[in-house]
Every structure is written in structure tokens, then in C-alpha cells.
């Protein structure tokens, strides 16, 4: 039952965050790149003001998988950075925390580029 609730929360919060994104696509002229930047920066800000942390606690992957979760990760990295290294940590923190995800995206992206072939959509 706990397991089910965990998945349900992830589904609801993750779905809701995507639902907001869909409204931005359908009702504004924002391009996907702008929307993604908005999510990451919003994730950083919401973490900074203490709102995103509790959401992650409650929804797990529902809050960490959307790109705002990437912003949360960056902000958490910075918090830890300045705790351990002071001001220098503000510089080293973001990528320390995000290193795994960014590196995976570069590595698997490159591999896809090496083996993949572009597809006609028609």
C-alpha cells in the first residue's frame, strides 16, 4: 500500500508539472527551450525559498524527474557547497551535484549520435 501511494504521488505531481508545461505550449508562444529554462530556474528559486524541498519529500520522483527537479538538484548542490567550501562552494556546488545527470546526458547523447540515424517524420 505504501508502495502504491508512493507511485500515485509521483504520478500526480509529475503529471501536474507537465500539465503546467502543456498550458505554456498551447496558450503562449514560448518555445520549448524557453520553457525548459523556465523550469530549471523556477526549480532553483522554489528550492531557495524552501518550497521545492518539501515537494520532493512528498512526491519523490514526481518532483525530481521534471526539469524543475534539476534546478532543485543544482540549488541543493550550492547549499552543500557553501556549507563545506564557503563562497567557492557557490561555484563548485551546482555541477558537483548535477555531474551525474549532465555527464550521462552528454555520454548517452554522444553514443546516440554515433549509432543513430536521423528519421523522416513522414
Amino acid at each position: 500500500m505504501d508502495m502504491f501511494m508512493e507511485y500515485l504521488k509521483a504520478f500526480l505531481v509529475g503529471g501536474a508539472l507537465c500539465l503546467i508545461g502543456q498550458q505554456l505550449i498551447d496558450r503562449t508562444k514560448l518555445t520549448p527551450a524557453r520553457i525548459l529554462v523556465g523550469y530549471v530556474v523556477a526549480g532553483v528559486i522554489l528550492t531557495a525559498v524552501g518550497l521545492y524541498g518539501p515537494l520532493v519529500e512528498w512526491a519523490g520522483a514526481g518532483a525530481t524527474v521534471p526539469l524543475s527537479g534539476f534546478g532543485y538538484l543544482l540549488a541543493k548542490g550550492v547549499e552543500e557547497g557553501i556549507r563545506e567550501h564557503g563562497l567557492l562552494g557557490a561555484l563548485t556546488g551546482p555541477f558537483t551535484a548535477a555531474a551525474g545527470g549532465v555527464m550521462a546526458a552528454i555520454l548517452f547523447g554522444l553514443l546516440a549520435g554515433l549509432v543513430g540515424k536521423s528519421h523522416d517524420k513522414s
Binding site: I25, S118, H119, D120, K121
Partner: peptide, 18 residues
């Protein structure tokens, strides 16, 4: 050609967008 125009004016072909 759909694919050359898409590459030049919009996004990579395998990029997911509506």
C-alpha cells in the same frame, strides 16, 4: 524537402515536439 527544411528552420528531426 521536409527534413532539410526542418533541420534549417526548426529542430533536429528526432527532437520531440508538438
Amino acid at each position: 524537402h521536409f527534413c532539410t527544411a526542418e533541420r534549417q528552420f526548426r529542430y533536429p528531426l528526432d527532437y520531440g515536439g508538438q
